[in-house]
Design a protein around this nucleic acid. Structure first.
Lengths: 348, 348
DNA sequence: CTGTTAGCGCCTTCAG
DNA sequence: CTGAAGGCGCTAACAG
């Protein structure tokens, strides 16, 4: 059943294998009679012929495969969106993805995982981390076309794409300000990762752009889960002069803030606006009211990475310059129902 | 860099390519001097040699690839767990996964997606649906080693594995009963999918095993999201004679039940126990108190599928019988904090 | 416009 | 115990 080869097609169509190869690959210069082409194509279809990509790969030295090394594929839908974006872009150019999940706790395994990809002669390697952070490139990646997704590398010479955390945070806070809020709390993550620092910068930028004084007391930090966030949210909201809106580091923390508000009898969004980050639909859609939040561009980063890979392949020939990485992709606002203008009597 | 071939290794080791091939593949009968083996292995390592799987595949007619057709890879972590299980099992046997995300709304594309896998000469195809349901096999899958994951097929001749929904529901309700509950509500899904019916059966079984009368009034149905579930949960809990525990079709619906309970001032788990289904950690872990729930065996189904594939490959030679599919894998209980004994004064 | 031919890198008989 | 030679299915020069 799998055994139908180019020769069978050639025989059925009454031509040589060369002709078959030419018409099926649409070889540019070679011209074949339209009628012959038709015969060949028909023969191929009736036999259910598909070219053996292995044999082709051996000959052309092109596997048609892009390796994707992904961390923690099983824990969040984030990896799935990266994969989806990468795959869609890849298929548009005749590539497929060879995906390997890698366990970042076992640092040694990176090497093995990469070797598997190399043995399969992938034409490039996309390396996707689970969350935005800095990595050092495993040595056997050196000299190969490598693209980093959601990760940065210190030298800035390896193409890499990360979310524009600062812009995302600014967008979130701007949305709150535009709704009329002036006193905006920020429940930030306490981990030392890029997102923590950059989202804080984005928050400050939004305030200063609108001539709103930055108040240190409005920023509280905790682990980035619902329960720790609940604790600090409760403290923040119990104050006499509580903020009218809260920007949360992520949707899980927002979930904690929802609970704190509910316990204190504070209505969302009438008495308190909340905005999250990550657009984890499982949470944002199922909270009530629906959580307005900022989406991470995972799908887009997947696309970007394979396009960069394609472009890189060309650069080898052209000898173009290297740019400064990482590239930052915007984080768009996703509006649901958790933001409203502040109540007048509440304003200060 | 990629160009190191078997010949380079042979040259460095001062032997022929044959010997290298034998040593690195551990060819059973061929015996090579231990000292020579060492030299070859050393040479391979210093050169960073990895066999070209494309060339090897052409020769052996084995790609070392298993195709995985997965639906909706991007929406839930479920697909990720299947992938992880399948990958781990596959690697243990020298296989890699060629993963293609397929869009089930575009039914025609299945064919194309499968053809891509076939062209890459995958040795078998795993077909994973996003949730437990019945499918009909695309025609170009006929005659190929195919394993269904989370899906069943009417003829029962195609190997397939699904969660044991009935056992899962029974386990959940038993846990409630063992905690002392007798009046147990069930917030069921209103969709006509296998899980809806089988979880109801499991619920009934648990009751009848404990001689508890089945009360139709304790079962309410809605769409399987938090908000619809909130509505019906509120109705259920507003009754004078409300149940002391609720079994929810899934964790999202449980999230709605939590909100209903909070609004009515009913404490979980002191005054109301709740148990979910799916073990969506994003929800179950971030709810307060943590949601006790039933886990779907996605990881295990991934493993099962590749093991069945491996076994199938052997059966071709052995000519074994076909079994009755689908096979059902158990759904284990995941205990968190949402179940407690009923309050005495509340117990009817 | 179409056919012949020579490998791609590896594995695998078959000789030495 | 080790080496030489052929061929897997396809593509790309080069002839015709």
């Amino acid at each position: 059943m799998t055994n139908v080869g180019i020769r069978d097609v050639a025989q059925l169509a009454g031509v040589s294998v060369t002709t078959v190869s030419h018409v099926l690959n649409n070889t540019p210069k070679m011209r074949v009679a339209e009628e012959t082409k038709e015969r060949v194509r028909h023969a191929a279809k009736t036999l259910g012929y598909g070219p053996n990509r292995i044999a082709r790969g051996l000959r052309t030295k092109k596997s048609g495969l892009i390796g994707l090394l992904s961390e923690e594929i099983a824990t969040t839908p984030h990896a799935g969106r990266i994969i989806l974006g990468a795959q869609n872009a890849a298929r548009m150019h005749g590539f497929n993805l060879l995906i390997i999940n890698t366990d970042r706790s076992l640092n040694d395994l990176y090497q093995d995982d990469i070797q598997v990809l190399i043995d399969n002669r992938v034409e490039g390697i996309l390396y996707a981390t689970m969350f935005h952070r800095e990595v050092t490139l495993p040595p056997n990646l050196h000299g190969r076309t490598t693209i980093l997704i959601d990760a940065r590398e210190s030298s800035g010479i390896v193409p890499s794409v990360v979310p524009n955390e600062t812009q995302g945070a600014t967008t979130a806070v701007n949305f709150l300000i535009d709704a009329g809020h002036r006193r905006i709390g920020f429940l930030n993550n306490s981990d030392d990762v890029p997102a923590t620092h950059e989202r804080l910068i984005g928050y400050k930028n939004a305030l200063s752009n609108h001539d709103i004084e930055f108040e240190k007391e409005l920023i509280l930090q905790s682990a980035s889960e619902a329960n720790p966030a609940y604790e600090i949210a409760k403290k923040l909201l119990a104050r006499a002069n509580r903020p009218t809106a809260i920007f949360c580091y992520n949707d899980r923390m927002a979930m904690g803030a929802y609970r704190a508000a509910a316990e204190l009898g504070i209505k969302i969004p009438e008495e308190l606006s909340i905005i999250g980050f990550d657009n984890q639909e499982l949470i944002a859609d199922n909270l009530f009211p629906g959580l307005t939040t900022i989406a991470l561009p995972h799908y887009e980063m997947g696309i970007w990475a394979v396009e960069k890979f394609l472009q890189k392949s060309d650069e080898v020939k052209a000898g173009e310059q290297q740019k400064n990485y990482p590239v930052r992709l915007d984080c768009p606002l996703v509006v649901r129902k958790s933001v409203a203008p502040p109540k007048n009597n509440r304003k200060d």
